[in-house]
Design a protein around this nucleic acid. Sequence first.
RNA 1: UGGCCUAUGGUGUAAUGGUAACACAGCGGUUUUUGGUACCGUCGUUCAAGGUUCGAGUCCUUGUAGGCCAACCA
Length: 702
Amino acid sequence: MTEEKKSLNFIEQIVADDLAKGLAKSSLRFRFPPEPNGYLHIGHAASICLNFGLGEQYGAPVNLRFDDTNPAKEEQAYVDAIKRDIKWLGFHWDKELYSSDYFDQLYDWAIELIKAGKAYVDDQTSEQIAAQKGTPTSVGSNSPYRDRSVEENLALFEQMKAGAFAEGSHVLRAKIDMHSPNMHMRDPIMYRILNKKHHRTGTRWHIYPMYDWTHGESDYIEQVSHSFCTLEFKSHRELYDWFLDQVYEKPNIRPIQREFARRNLSYTVMSKRKLLELVEGGYVTGWDDPRMPTISGLRRRGYTPNSIRKFSEISGISKRDNVTDVSLLEFCVKDDLNKTAPRVMAVLNPVKVVITNYPEGKEEWLVAENNPEDEKSGHRKVPFSRELYIEREDFREVANKRFFRLTLGKEVRLKNAYIIKAESVIKDDSGEIIEIHCSYDPLTKSGSGTPESKRKVKGTLHWVSIPHAIKAEVRLYDRLFIDEAPDSHKDKDFKEFINPNSLKIIPEAYVEPSLKNAKPESNFQFQRLGYFNIDTDSTPEKLVFNRTVPLTDSWAKIENKKETPSTINSMPMVMTAAGKYLKAREDEERNALTKQLQEAAATITLEQLVPLLATAQSNKEYLGYLMTLNSFQLSEGDIASHKEVLNTLLGKALLMKNSYVRFQAVDFIGRNPSLKKAHETLLKKMAVEDKNTHILARLTEF
RNA sequence: UGGCCUAUGGUGUAAUGGUAACACAGCGGUUUUUGGUACCGUCGUUCAAGGUUCGAGUCCUUGUAGGCCAACCA
């Protein structure tokens, strides 16, 4: 039986290679090493899924080890939160361990290093030490205390441990090489004095080991075979290995460190420091605010463990900088919830509907499917009566034929109920519709099997029966930031990009009565609206729902489209020509394509083109639009009335990597000198720096 | 005035010297008692220039661009 070969990411490949080279499968051991100074986020999920995934794949143990060497920042509360999140994701660790468990062993090894002349106590201030350290581009110099005698070092270190010194007065340093091109090898600090209470060791220690001294040795103590971390630790690897050299004994497993890129998500930030800032600054309600990219936040928002694991799996692991689109995460949760979340009806923005020919006081309990994607999910009953709520957006007095919801004189199906027809509306003094009067056809009852019930009606609406509805608070979340990468702007604080509308509260929405006893964290699909779950703030007296993610809304797309696209039939032809132009090898071919493009462009007007310009993304689009523009004879008036759009396009195009795009942009500016001013500096720079001879030649012409 | 890492569609990842692929997003359509789902179609990619090779996204050289490294943080 041949198993389908799944391609391995480079980390999995490393493990497979080590196994192939003779490492026993039974020697495999991994670890996930969080520092308990904050909550886990979706970026950590990559590491968790990688390490625990490898464990599951090879049946190897994975330790959960808290890297707790800095009592100033770490707290038991974070330990608890981290454990809760990992369990929730569905992973099981072999041993729960703490770096602080190894303080004694680490201390003993440090003594040995001192005795071997490989570590010394330095009495200088941190400023002095930093100054001697040099910079990445210049070497460091030795500390005046570097050559203290072993006896003196031992005595001093003993006093440091005993609490005889003030914080910051002494450190223990490894004696390596102040001239190393690797800053971490310039006599790194192994211990500092900290008179702080540790969440586990209390006040027993006055000295605490640094990360580099602790991490590799902890891996070694635990006999971890592969120690995976993120890329910013790459330059620590040399030191990781040096420290291991000092204590390693055959035939023990010698851990190796390997690095992968951290995972970033669009429209959020992913550093614990920045997340802490959001929490402490009151921008969110806490680490588990549903807008936070933390595991706890995602959980409260309604994300499922499956969806997060799937996201990690399909996002993959690599070594390059990345910003994964949040739409992929949303896809994962919709995909999961589509199969598992019960469908229910809720009305968020209600307008009253009166079925005028339905008897007053009558109620019916209609059968509704719980989940069409899951046969086993069964059915429930929903109450129907003469007075209902539907969404305000689902009714228009008059509408075009693309709107196939309720309009005066037209029919729609009420989901699981009857076909109704809107007859009239009642408005208040301000002209707002307060009631829609409809008639229903009793023969069209859903599932009744009558020919009338099988009639095809284009629109289907969700609804709730007013006398039976339960009031609930609904919280609608949107992305926390309006910028795709809020912390990527060098001169701006990421908080400037916070989305002021990231939370919209609907204090009084109406939900069907079956939701009365729904439990916190349970997920639902509010039909036609989105996936929602019950928030932890919810009580039986007052239900609170969070919107996890809206359903794909193709109606919004249709509606938002310009009413007058006046069908630019030739635009696709322009784009095809532009695409081929980019790939063309010969000038002859390019000339032919230019002609083709110009012919197609001749039927396009500037007014049709302008709205498209802002949407340009690919080389092809930029090229197609610019070549079309270049085929026009534009007046000063044309330019003036679209100056902003044109300048935006040109500004971006001039910076594109593709030289054809840049050339067309330059050419266009050349033809229309009034645009030159806005790009003057860039053009001057290009005249000096651009590598393309055609561009340079064109630039000399103006 | 250094060291190290990275570069594949709009985004994320495959291709392990042998036909550049998958997913998301986008666009178009079919089905539908959710304008959901499902299904079908479509768009679009190897940073540049040299070199090695019968053959290069992959190996080499030189550039270019981006990232990391100067906490008594991890």
